[in-house]
Computed example of a mutant assay.
Amino acid sequence: MSNSITTVNPATGETLETYALMDASHAKQIVEASHEAFLDWRLKPLEQRAKVVKAIGEALNANKEELAELMVKEMGKLPNQARQEVELCAGICDYTAKHGPTTLADEERNPSNGERGIVTYSPMGVIYGIQPWNFPAYQVVRYSIANIMAGNSVLLKHAENVTGSGLL
């Protein structure tokens, strides 16, 4: 088994980058750090989480051209489609930041027996996403942003051929 991943432009065959694989010890450290981050993040108010989610969307927009260009090189996506994918991801962040605090707010219920009930949406922990190559930004955002908003931490194992996109 190789100790590295090499990304290749499918249109030209050009080697784009070679990335070292993590060893088991480093991977374990990353999982533990993600759990530690979760223990803190889960306690943050929904409004604070929404600000972070909004900032992720803003960062996507600010880096749209760089990410789109990398998607074109790594997986052969058309430039216009790559930009649209990044814009969609930024839109998901904006929507989640705007509606997340209301959607995830505690709900009071009044059962017919006169008691009082509260529905609370609680985070679960570290969410691990193994993602395919075909939508390198969207596949990540669709699982991670809602989970981040909900108070979870997320880990990503992206497809090898889009390692650069995953890191960016």
Score class of each variant (00 low, 15 high):
Gln84Leu: 13
Glu87Cys: 11
Leu43Ile: 00
Leu70Tyr: 02
Ile148Leu: 15
Ser4Tyr: 13
Ala59Asn: 09
Tyr128Glu: 05
Ala27Thr: 15
Lys64Trp: 00
Asn80His: 14
Pro45Asp: 09
Ala27Gln: 13
Ala105Pro: 00
Thr18Phe: 08
Gly125Cys: 04
Ala82Ile: 00
Lys51Gln: 11
Gln139Cys: 12
Tyr121Arg: 04
Met71Asp: 01
Lys77Leu: 13
Thr18Ile: 10
Leu88Asn: 11
Ala55Met: 11
Gly164Val: 00
Pro101Arg: 02
Glu58Gly: 05
Asn9Ile: 06
Cys89Ile: 04
Lys73Ser: 12
Arg109Asn: 07
Ile56Ser: 05
Glu85Cys: 15
Glu47Cys: 07
Leu21Cys: 14
Pro123Ala: 07
Met124Gln: 12
Ala24Lys: 07
Ile145Ala: 08
Glu87Ser: 14
Gly76Trp: 06
Tyr95Glu: 10
Val140Gln: 09
Asn80Gln: 15
Thr12Gly: 12
Cys93Arg: 00
Leu155Asn: 02
Met22Asn: 15
Ala97Gln: 06
Ser165Trp: 00
Gly13Lys: 07
Tyr143Arg: 01
Leu39Thr: 11
Ala11Leu: 13
Thr102Ile: 09
Arg116Ile: 14
Cys89Leu: 10
Lys44His: 09
Thr103Trp: 14
Ala82Trp: 01
Tyr19Trp: 15
Ser2Glu: 12
Tyr95Phe: 14
Ser4Trp: 11
Glu107His: 00
Glu115Cys: 11
Gly164Phe: 02
Asp23Asn: 14
